[in-house]
């Protein structure tokens, strides 16, 4: 690197002689513009089909696939579900989902530590979106990288399994801050863990200025009621936007007591009205 001007050009003299040729152009554009555009495109697909899309994130082994299996068992009869699986390698998770009778598309990312909107776009063309109610995207197990990429989902759910410890929101604020729901999984282990407090997770979420509800459950022993009710609310919200777009003037008449979101804004925060701290 040139020690005088800091440039990395090998020939400094040439650089110095042409310095007057350099001019600065202001850009002010987000570095995620490309991914955000692809995510917006995905979201348009999802909204046209009227389905709810949930991005599931957690560290590896927190129980994302196990939760999906239990969710399919509980909801499969009532709603048409599908799953996009993201893993570095193997089709194992997609096989587990297909064994439950639900379509699953496996994305193997190779060395990439996260899913991005373009990968999801490729995968969703393999799914019958029009015939679905809820699509789950199981992200790569990682509490860091997936947080930086919008996939076009309507809601982000972060799983935190009890053996991981209750201070994860403070250690991974970027991920947890943008979660619409935190699910504490493996809650059946709570009696044998003396250092995990569900209330502490909730307090940490508020410290991140997040109103996201915190629900504890066990995919193994249940009950899943609160999680299923959250999904049903989210789905009803999607359906409301698709089938009954409320004109601007009717905002107080259509949903008394609930904050109205214009369709444009609803694309950014579709589940706002279900984001109360205590469901």
């Amino acid at each position: 690197m040139c020690q005088t001007c800091g440039c990395a050009l090998p020939d400094h003299l040439q650089h110095a002689s042409s310095e007057h040729d350099v001019h600065t152009v202001a850009v002010l554009e987000g570095l995620k513009a490309h991914n955000d555009a692809a995510a917006g495109h995905n979201r348009a697909h999802f909204d046209r089909a009227g389905l709810l899309v949930v991005n599931l994130m957690s560290s590896p082994g927190a129980g994302k696939t196990r939760l999906l299996e239990a969710t399919i068992e509980a909801l499969g009869g009532r709603h048409r579900l599908a799953v996009i699986e993201g893993d570095l390698e193997t089709e194992n998770d997609a096989r587990r989902i297909r064994a439950k009778g639900v379509p699953a598309v496996q994305i193997t990312t190779g060395s990439a530590c996260h899913l991005d909107a373009t990968m999801v776009h490729r995968a969703l063309h393999a799914l019958p979106l029009e015939d679905l109610d809820i699509l789950f995207i199981e992200n790569v197990g990682n509490l860091v990288c997936p947080a930086s990429f919008d996939l076009g989902q309507h809601a982000s759910v972060t799983l935190l399994s009890t053996p991981e410890g209750d201070d994860k929101p403070l250690k991974y604020p970027v991920m947890f801050r943008q979660s619409d729901l935190v699910l504490i999984t493996k809650a059946d282990l709570l009696p044998v863990l003396d250092d995990f407090e569900v209330a502490a997770v909730e307090a940490h979420m508020r410290r991140l200025a997040s109103p996201a509800p915190v629900l504890a459950l066990s995919s193994r022993t249940g009950p899943l009621d609160a999680w299923l009710a959250w999904l049903e609310t989210g789905l009803a919200e999607r359906r409301r936007h698709v089938f009954r777009p409320a004109p601007d003037g009717e905002r107080l008449l259509t949903r008394p007591g609930a904050p109205y979101h214009a369709p444009d804004h609803a694309q950014d925060h579709p589940l706002d009205s279900s984001r109360s701290p205590a469901p």
């Binding site: 042409s18 040729d21 350099v22 001019h23 600065t24 202001a26 850009v27």
Partner: peptide, 10 residues
């Protein structure tokens, strides 16, 4: 996460 400006060489 912003690209603020670029310096271009003519």
């Amino acid at each position: 996460l912003l690209l603020v400006s670029v310096d271009l060489a003519a």
